[in-house]
Design a protein around this nucleic acid. Structure first.
Lengths: 247, 247
DNA sequence: CGGTTACTTGAGATACGTCAAAACGAGTGG
DNA sequence: CCACTCGTTTTGACGTATCTCAAGTAACCG
């Protein structure tokens, strides 16, 4: 939540290059400009960097498991991560995908509410809980920024619920592709969408089977709405997709 | 999020009766003990009460609409509320139900991300945004409590997504009934569950049609798992229901 | 190049949706 | 107290989107 009306805290940053010189682990993160760090001034940022550990995860490597004690927080700097929960019988719901610039650990308490795995080689800045906690407690800016992020996360969850509860398979796929595109090309609207996740991941995210995902994609391709290449999709008729995928 | 390990802030409250004497609008709220207010000491609480306006909503009355400017926050003191979003074509997803003790307005920014309507006569404490904001900014306890609540809300959303994405109609209904029971009888496990919402609301919450909801309920009744009376359900075989509704 | 995993495609089954009508409950007026 | 109406809930018959099972093809990697 963002308790004052000025949501645009992001302004007032100096050039991103200005922070390159700090001699810490988490240096040269290319995404710092879009991360939580942008809530901070230069010296505060240096403080944050001083407690950051650069971490690397391989494909399929577990970042944390549901039920684990939440001992650290992560700011993803490259790659992609899937968040999920399992039923006892093996069914899996993918709760979301997180990429460069996203923060892991916003969600409350002492225990992780879900598991996280890298779906491709991923780098992140890790913050130990005690250090991060005490930093946050002393920096209202940062707390507010995190709170704002948490609010955005609820918004994402709501979008997801709309898709799962009300949309057809076609519509879900369209929505999924469009929201991926939006995240990947923040500014431009380039028409090539990278799909770092498998069909199974997409299915478990959208509440569909892998077969339905595949079928729906090839159908859209037959209709010249998209074209499919391994691990990417190219948008051919964005308007038509939007007609399906927008509320 | 709860940045320190001591989640149990709720302790250390004096007797709930101690706060009855303050001569303000939002007096004698029976649920104050479970509300955000319990993050505060007596004097802080009095401060909070001094900016609260007791508000009443009739059945079907709109509390706020998606897209509205978020001009206030609510702490529900009795009754029940549905939160929902609409598609352009009229489809509706109910995002959740909120009852006594729940807080409305946790979700971020300047604009409401969804609509809220009373589903039965409802009372709430309303807080104007400016007053509430400035109070929160000066009370780290309160901010932390709100943050914690927001985290819980994400947890609820995840449970909901599990249900929508992975469960059958039967399982969704079972989960729904069980989670309602849990909320209503925090302590005891009385077996009578009140359903203030209509079948349509339940359907739109669970991503099912009204007919499927009805059929599934009557089926469970035929199997002596529950028995149905207007606006209530009685649990006859909680164990069997739990087998369906638990992850 | 062979083995493995991911993806696609097909045919058939089913859970749930749709459409339509009947039963029920609550409120109103005679 | 009964009859009437209106909205909600239940029930039925039928259609279909999606799932399941199974096989085939393509991509990846040593």
């Amino acid at each position: 939540m963002n308790f004052d009306s000025s949501a645009a805290h992001n302004a007032g940053d100096g050039s991103p290059l200005a922070y390159r010189k700090a001699g810490v682990d988490c240096d040269n993160c290319p995404v710092r400009a879009v991360s939580i760090c942008c809530a901070l001034g230069p010296d505060e940022r240096r403080q944050l960097e001083s407690i950051a550990h650069r971490t690397v995860f391989n494909t399929k490597e577990t970042i944390f498991l549901e039920g684990d004690r939440s001992g650290s927080f992560f700011n993803i700097t490259s790659g992609a991560v899937r968040l999920f929960r399992l039923f006892r019988d093996g069914r899996r719901q993918v709760l979301g995908f997180r990429m460069a610039g996203d923060f892991l650990g916003l969600d409350m308490g002492d225990q992780r509410g879900f598991s996280a795995e890298a779906i491709e080689p991923t780098t992140a800045c890790r913050f130990g809980r005690p250090q991060f906690t005490s930093l946050v407690e002393s920096k209202p800016h940062l707390l507010r920024k995190l709170h704002e992020r948490t609010g955005q996360e609820i918004g994402l969850a709501h979008d997801h619920m709309m898709a799962l509860g009300q949309r057809s398979a076609r519509e879900r796929i369209a929505w999924f592709l469009l929201s991926l595109r939006e995240r990947q090309n923040k500014a431009s609207s380039a028409d090539v969408i990278r799909l770092p996740m498998s069909r199974q991941d997409i299915g478990d995210f959208l509440g569909l089977t892998i077969e339905t995902v595949s079928r729906t994609l090839t159908l859209l391709a037959r209709e010249n709405v998209i074209s499919i290449t391994p691990r990417t999709v190219r948008l051919r008729d964005a308007r038509r997709l939007a007609k399906l995928g927008t509320s």
